[in-house]
């Protein structure tokens, strides 16, 4: 040991005071809770919701003509699927969603990436895209019906214009957020503009694009129901509309239930795809 210092020995500090563990509390600001807790709490809110509903129906607190209890909705859903070919309606709705969404992505992804990368492309398209974003898609329904008739075309077109402009804007913003250092690093390694786009910008923004797609697919469902309610004979929305005409509230509710479940399923697929495609994204950033 050199001069000018004194090492404090461990024994000097070894006297342990009486220790007492801190009490666990239900409500702590921002603190994580055990997984089991959060799972149980998540399930119990639904149990409570349907339980109250059933109870209210059984006690006659609500008019079951307008609010049939959950078990009746489930039973109706079963007969719709088993006896009235509801599955094919679900199928055609999913087909409309996927086809229109694929078309929207096919344009939005390349355009959004290019707009986010090059200010020249941005300056040309942005005034156009921004203006369209503020026009509500359903306002085009009368026009679309005149152009495409009541066939598939008008539905696909509504879904398409309903999501594409938002999708372009989201992807453009994400592309613009690709860190300049990554691009500059590639430049000083000798990459040309095309190589930077294909080997840096695209892979860097890909996870964010998938997240945007997940969000916009949910919006797609909104427009689907609008399209099918307005003018369709097939699809989940059309079935719900018929239910309304014949005062079959349970059929309307079954439709809502199915939309919710299919939506959740697609959400799950996107999350799964994210995990499989982008294993390198740090957990905290997912």
């Amino acid at each position: 040991m050199g001069a000018g210092q004194r090492v404090v020995e461990r024994e000097e500090l070894a006297q342990a005071p009486n220790t007492k563990p801190r009490r666990q509390r239900w409500f702590e600001y921002q603190k994580p809770i055990p997984v089991v807790w959060s799972l149980l709490l998540g399930i119990s809110v639904w149990v409570l919701f349907f339980g109250m509903w059933e109870l209210a129906a059984a006690r006659g607190w609500i008019d079951t003509l307008f609010m049939p209890p959950p078990h009746q909705v489930l039973a109706t859903l079963y007969t719709m699927i088993a006896e009235r070919g509801f599955l094919s309606d679900i199928g055609i709705s999913i087909y409309r969603i996927l086809l229109s969404f694929a078309m929207a992505c096919a344009i939005a992804i390349p355009l959004g990436v290019l707009m986010g990368s090059f200010r020249t492309v941005d300056a040309f398209f942005n005034p156009f895209v921004s203006a369209w974003r503020y026009l509500p898609a359903p306002a085009f329904i009368p026009l679309l019906l005149m152009w495409f008739g009541v066939g598939e075309g008008s539905k696909l077109a509504l879904l398409f214009i309903g999501v594409i402009f938002f999708l372009i804007t989201l992807i453009m913003d994400h592309t613009r957020a690709v860190r300049a250092e990554l691009i500059e690093t590639a430049m000083t390694l000798g990459a040309n503009r095309w190589q930077i786009l294909s080997t840096i910008v695209l892979p860097a923004v890909a996870p964010k694009i998938l997240v945007s797609m997940r969000q916009m697919l949910a919006v797609s469902w909104t427009y689907l129901v609008i399209a099918e309610i307005v003018a369709a004979t097939t699809g989940i929305g059309a079935v719900m509309m018929r239910g309304q005409r014949f005062l079959k509230v349970d059929e309307i509710m079954a439709g809502i239930l199915v939309i919710g479940m299919v939506g959740l399923f697609f959400d799950f697929l996107f999350r799964l795809a994210y995990r499989v495609l982008f294993p390198f994204v740090a957990n905290g950033q997912r």
Partner: peptide, 17 residues
């Protein structure tokens, strides 16, 4: 820029993918 003058930055520039 040219590959004869490679640069290392302060912020991390790993290509995450």
């Amino acid at each position: 820029p040219h590959k004869s003058r490679g640069m290392v930055f302060q912020r991390y520039t790993s290509f995450d993918w």
